[in-house]
């Protein structure tokens, strides 16, 4: 046996390599073939409509669901997308490992901003004037210990002014002006005045819901342990994720700004998304089912009832512009 191996090692080795390559090619061709069908699976009817990124078809096409549950694939390819008042922000990969935020107004590309990391969150203010995003800066290797941070950018389409990172703004943590540098901001939501915004501050092991002022370039903390805020269309409530599950998982909560009352959304355990308001009473978010692809759900904002599944193998939910 050993002699045979020694004599035929080259032939056996080359054969093994050919077999591996052939199996790989067959597998990939088979997978790519059946992905076309996945992109046209119908979803649930959504009265006010839903914009989302399709993850099943292998092309990340921005698609929409209408009031009858009909699914329409678009031509834009994004990792994250959000649309409001005719403005669309699309976070996508431009070059290997290089990402960009492309801004479209009424279907025309008006601005492209290079991003310093992997896209995480994207938002457009209700007026369509303020665009914001969050990316993870990960350095050269996912194995570099501590080699990550977030960067949050804000783009004002009226003036064209770009804030590359919220770290340039002044920060007051619980009344104390802050000078530390290792701070991460993420998940912006802009109010209807196109100046006030909410976001998340993470520093050491604590997160805060923060409230900021774009003109004054300043931010203050509002409360602890609230991430990825999303301001309701009527400006009275903020939805956010908060660690509250049994295993320290995130759940969605809605905070009434006037009364300070916090309501938990049932069935949202394990969510990791910035929720989007589809209308004044409904929130949508993506959540991964155990061992599967992300699925988009909608939930009543008053915490009544279980979430309803809208579409499977999809992420980045938002209203239709």
């Amino acid at each position: 046996m050993k002699d045979w191996f020694v004599r035929n090692r080259i032939v056996v080795g080359v054969t093994a390599m050919v077999v591996v390559i052939a199996l790989g090619v067959v597998y990939v061709v088979a997978t790519v073939r059946d992905q076309q069908a996945a992109a046209t699976q119908p979803g649930a009817a959504v009265a006010s409509g839903l914009t989302f990124v399709d993850n099943g078809g292998g092309q990340n096409l921005v698609s929409t669901l209408d009031a009858s549950g009909k699914r329409t694939p678009g031509s834009l390819k994004c990792l994250r997308v959000y649309t409001a008042a005719g403005t669309t922000v699309c976070l996508r990969m431009g070059l290997p490992g290089a990402y960009e935020a492309a801004v479209y107004v009424d279907g025309k590309e008006v601005r492209t901003v290079p991003l310093p990391g992997t896209p995480s969150r994207a938002r457009v203010s209700a007026s369509g004037k303020i665009v914001s995003w969050t990316v993870f800066v990960t350095g050269d290797s996912y194995l570099a210990p501590g080699g990550f941070s977030t960067r949050t950018g804000v783009l004002d389409l009226r003036s064209g002014e770009l804030v590359e990172s919220l770290e340039a703004f002044s920060m007051t943590i619980e009344g104390v002006p802050d000078k530390r540098v290792n701070e991460n901001y993420w998940g912006v939501t802009v109010a209807s005045d196109d100046n006030t915004f909410y976001a998340t501050l993470g520093s050491s092991n604590t997160t805060w819901l923060i409230k900021g002022d774009l003109k004054a370039r300043s931010m203050v903390t509002v409360r602890q342990s609230a991430e990825c805020p999303s301001l309701s269309p009527d400006q009275t409530r903020v939805a956010y994720k908060k660690r509250g599950g049994r295993l320290g998982t995130w759940q969605l909560f809605v905070l009434d700004l006037a009364s300070g009352k916090e309501t938990q959304l049932p069935g949202s355990d394990g969510v990791d998304d910035q929720a989007a308001w589809l209308n004044p009473t409904t929130l949508a978010y993506a959540k991964v089912q155990q061992g599967g692809a992300p699925t988009i759900y909608e939930s009543a904002a008053d915490g009544s009832g279980q979430p309803r599944e809208l579409v499977a193998a999809a992420s980045s939910p938002g209203p239709v512009a």
Binding site: F136, T138, Y142, F148, P294, S315
Partner: peptide, 11 residues
């Protein structure tokens, strides 16, 4: 995107 997880914990 595929797992909808925060990258921070993984790092």
């Amino acid at each position: 995107f595929n797992l909808q997880m925060s990258y921070l914990q993984l790092g």
